[in-house]
Design a protein around this nucleic acid. Structure first.
Length: 857
RNA sequence: GGGCGCUUAGCUCAGUUGGUUAGAGCAGCUGAUUUACACUCAGCAGGUCGGGGGUUCGAGUCCCUCAGCGCCCACCA
């Protein structure tokens, strides 16, 4: 223990309080740049964290406190271990959530066909009817609102004492992020890891954009089985199918049954005729047809669900698209080769009632017509079945054919699975979620979104003399020109006047999926292309919630695998959910979302962090104000205990560890060594919760037992050896405990450490056993334990007799084994002082018995 | 349909490779009282460890099985 580590106590307040600590320390940390990353650091000394950039368009909720405390605790640990901790903060502000928030907040909607309006200001209050604005105006509003939202989020993070280096702040819509996102895309294009194609795609008809498999969500919805009869084309009789989507009848391209299904085997290769529309379709065989479902033979439409897409692809069926990008029914030409109706006039006339209508409207009309025609057999059979939704959407997804960019994830599935094994998962079982997701991938990752507030695809396409677009030969910008916006900038070699003209170009109108940019968070935070990146990549830690394993975590692995042939991070720390006090998942629709600021105000940051840190990795944790109160109590206890101990150390230099000579004191330091070793190992394993539990228990025992035992002795003359031993022990124990708790309770530990040190506890060295007297102790606690046992017996007797704990004990008679007696004899002075014992007698015996005789007077 | 996790005191949770009478905090109850702390201190009480079966000298801990809760994944006509 050096003098530098434990200088003389100073400025210990008379009445310490946790109130006001946050305001004080937030300012001091800023002034002293306590958490500043060392830009000169190299990879071998860096501990880097790939902080999750939260979606700022959402509400702040208690989950933010919970899940951001965990990596901060880890960051603080490694910083004290002497690592150069790279702990940036990003905001995920691009994408649909922001657009939706802007639409609702300002009462606007984006219409890309409108011209830009200079000096446009949004109305103060959102009108009932949304105002249409140009794309540029819309994007400006998005920028404006995200900046405001980010201030609110930043305030919470700061208030919580998250030890971020704010000079490393980034946002996913920034020029920097756009450049990196576009560069990464272009490099993938160069390596043929992405491709664009026209394909059936999951489509949200409200947001009018494609979505990816990762953004899908099943929701149980009521539906009906409709039994529909198809007349056989060249024979008598009908084939009955069951469908939940009769509105798609006009898009039917085949019926399908299992190849082994005896009922239909003879029919394979023959045709049936669709009711109402009179189109001949074949009966085909495919393994995916389930004989158990419905009538065992299904109607294939283009497209009712993803199984239809599989059948369509594998059976090489034609495409008869019905549903448009807005969810309304498209025009259809029943006379055409693609739609050969036996009775064009009837089909066309009927379809006229459907064109331009919504799905629900068409369903009602078709069902009525089927019933009238006799093709609808029996009653509808109500069912509840899972329907695919966009996770942020309100109506079921449709499948719409459109041109999209895809990342080739499927053909690299095995490599991606192997990358998952390279990551250390905390807790380890979370790896299963990654594995089952990757194993279940069935389409490539669609990264195009037909939206506005995002990173544009940095490509243009040439047009030929007829104005036809050649999508196979995209024109790309120079990397030095990034970021580019192809919708407002011309490609190299062209003038803006050639836009949308024959022998000219068109800009790609789409933006990248928001995950296609946030999956580059290590590159963005680490400023890919600069020396900084080499110092921080691959990241040491990816902290995140489990529900985004399939999105953020997976997509980051994909990007890193393709770009660097490496994992993007070596550890994944997965946090659980915060549940409401009744252990229900919090959700906006249930209305049980808890906002963090009132709790933060009421209990204090350290208290909320204590609650958060008691939630183990991956474990869902209920909001528990009682737990927050305990955290606050611990912080207050730390203030008072520090004040008391430092009070005992005032007046003369603090003795060093070599002066710890008393048996009890040496034993306490042995226990302390055990605590340090254990706590350090736990932190290294990301088990901050268990470390907290052990340290907390030790701290309370230290206060209630050890400090009580030695408080008299520590008062002695400063040249007395046993006094010096007690003071040295108190000092080293307090120092260690303050530091072990610093990652969890940064405010109160900063305060108490400051009472006797020049530098911040948060850059102080993590405690090691080298600070303690060097001893090899077979059984730590061999002295402290027995002494506490006897002390407890004395306290019990006083409690039973309902007298003050200060009451005197005339005789304390202990009979116990030899070692036990030796232990308490070695601490006799302290035991007598703490217990008010006049006389201690000891007898050797097999069992431990303590007889306490209170002083009758 | 496949997979993962959880089930221990009224509540929230520990219980590390199986080892003596199962732990903590909170709540409850009984007390103490003013030289660190009432946001205190001491003490007491409270559990057949979800059910059943098995392995073992010994099971909260390992195996099988069942049940409940939660979650992830799945081609759900």
């Amino acid at each position: 223990m050096s003098d530098a580590l434990h200088p003389r106590p100073r400025r210990v307040p008379d009445k310490p309080t946790v109130d006001g600590l946050e305001a004080t320390w937030l300012v001091r940390w800023d002034e002293n740049a306590t958490y500043q990353f060392n830009r000169a650091a190299t990879r071998d000394t860096v501990y880097s964290i790939d902080t999750p950039p939260p979606t700022v368009s959402g509400e702040l909720h208690i989950g933010h406190i919970f899940s951001y405390t965990h990596p901060d605790v880890i960051a603080r640990f490694w910083r004290m271990r002497g690592e150069d901790v790279f702990y940036p903060m990003g905001w995920d502000d691009n994408g649909l959530p922001t657009e939706r928030r802007v639409e609702n907040y300002f009462g606007v909607r984006c219409d890309p066909s409108l011209p830009y309006e200079e000096g446009f200001t949004a109305p103060d209050k959102a009108a009932a009817q949304k105002i249409s604005v140009s794309r540029k105006n819309f994007v400006e509003l998005c920028h404006f609102l995200t900046i405001e939202d980010e201030k609110i989020f930043k305030n919470l993070w700061r208030h919580l004492g998250i030890s971020i280096d704010w000079s490393l702040e980034y946002s996913t819509i920034s020029k920097l992020a756009q450049s990196i996102s576009q560069r990464a895309f272009l490099e993938m294009l160069e390596r043929s890891e992405v491709y664009s194609t026209v394909a059936p795609t999951l489509w949200d008809i409200d947001f009018r954009t494609a979505v990816s498999q990762a953004e899908l969500e099943d929701r149980e919805r009521p539906g009906n089985y409709h039994r529909v009869a198809f007349a056989r084309a060249d024979a008598e009789g009908v084939i009955e199918i069951e469908t939940t989507r009769p509105e798609l009848l006009a898009s039917c391209v085949a019926l399908v049954a299992h190849p082994d299904d005896e009922r239909y085997r003879a029919l394979f290769g023959t045709n049936v005729v669709t009711p109402l529309f009179g189109v001949d379709v074949p009966i085909l065989a495919h393994e995916l047809a389930d004989p158990e479902k419905g009538s065992g033979i299904a109607m294939i439409c283009t497209f009712g669900d993803t199984t239809d897409v599989v059948w369509w692809r594998e059976l090489s069926l034609p495409t008869r698209a019905l549903i448009g990008r807005d969810g309304r029914f498209l025009p259809v030409d029943f006379g055409s080769a693609n739609w050969p109706s036996r009775d064009v006039e009837v089909a066309t006339k009927f379809y006229a009632q459907l064109e331009g209508r919504t799905i629900n409207q068409v369903r009602a009309t078709v069902v009525d017509a089927l019933r009238e025609s006799g093709a609808l057999i029996g009653d509808l059979r109500p069912i509840t079945h899972p329907v695919k939704f966009y996770e942020k959407g309100e109506r079921p997804l449709e499948i719409v054919t459109s041109r999209q960019w895809f990342v080739k994830t499927l053909e690299h599935r095995d490599e991606l699975l192997a990358r998952g094994d390279e990551i250390a998962w905390h807790p380890s079982f979370m790896k299963h979620r990654y594995r089952s997701w990757v194993e279940g991938l069935n389409v490539d990752w669609n990264i195009s979104r037909q939206r506005f507030f995002g990173v544009p695809f940095p490509v243009w396409y040439p047009t030929d003399a007829n104005g036809e677009v050649n999508f196979d030969a995209p024109i790309v910008p120079a990397l030095s020109a990034l970021p580019v916006d192809p919708s407002s900038e011309a490609p190299p070699g062209f003038d803006e006047s050639a836009r949308n003209r024959p022998n000219g170009f068109v800009g790609d109108p789409d933006v990248l999926d928001t995950w296609a940019t946030s999956s580059l968070s290590p590159q963005i935070a680490g400023r890919w292309g600069t020396e900084l990146f080499d110092a921080v990549f691959p990241m040491d830690l990816r902290p995140q919630a489990h529900e985004i394993i399939r999105t953020w975590l997976f997509s980051t692995v994909v990007r890193s695998h393709f770009q660097f042939h490496a994992v993007p991070f070596t550890n994944a720390l997965i946090s659980g959910w915060v549940l409401d006090p009744d252990r229900k998942k919090m959700s906006k629709s249930v209305g049980n979302v808890v906002t963090p600021l009132p709790l933060l105000e009421q209990h204090g940051a350290d208290a909320l962090r204590y609650w958060a840190a008691s939630g183990r990795p991956g474990t869902d944790t209920a909001i528990d104000e009682a737990q927050m109160k305990i955290g606050r109590r611990l912080a207050i206890k730390m203030l008072n205990a520090s004040k008391f101990v430092l009070g005992r150390l005032e007046g003369s230099p603090i003795p060093g560890p070599s002066e710890i000579t008393t048996a009890l004191d040496l034993d306490l330091t042995s226990l302390l060594a055990q605590l340090i070793t254990e706590s350090t190992a736990l932190f290294e394993q990301y088990d901050y919760a268990r470390s907290l539990e052990r340290t907390e228990a030790f701290f309370w025992s230290f206060c209630d037992n050890y400090v009580e035992l030695v408080k008299i002795r520590a008062y002695g003359e400063s040249d007395d050896l046993s006094t010096r031993s007690a003071r040295a022990t108190l000092a080293v124990a307090l120092s260690v405990l303050q530091r072990l708790l610093a990652p969890i309770l940064p405010f109160v530990t900063a305060e108490v450490w400051d009472w006797w040190h020049e530098d911040s506890v948060h850059v102080a060295p993590w405690p090691t056993i080298d600070e303690l007297p060097t001893r090899d102790v077979p059984e730590p606690g061999a002295v402290y334990g027995p002494i506490c046992d006897v002390l407890e017996a004395i306290r019990r007797e006083k409690s039973t007799q309902k007298v003050s704990q200060r009451a005197a004990v005339s005789i304390c008679a202990v009979s116990a084994p030899k070692e036990f007696i030796a232990a308490i004899r070695s601490g006799e002075v302290d035991l007598k002082a703490a217990g008010g014992v006049v006389e201690l007698t000891t007898t050797e015996a097999g069992d431990v018995t303590v007889v306490v005789t209170l002083d009758a007077s």
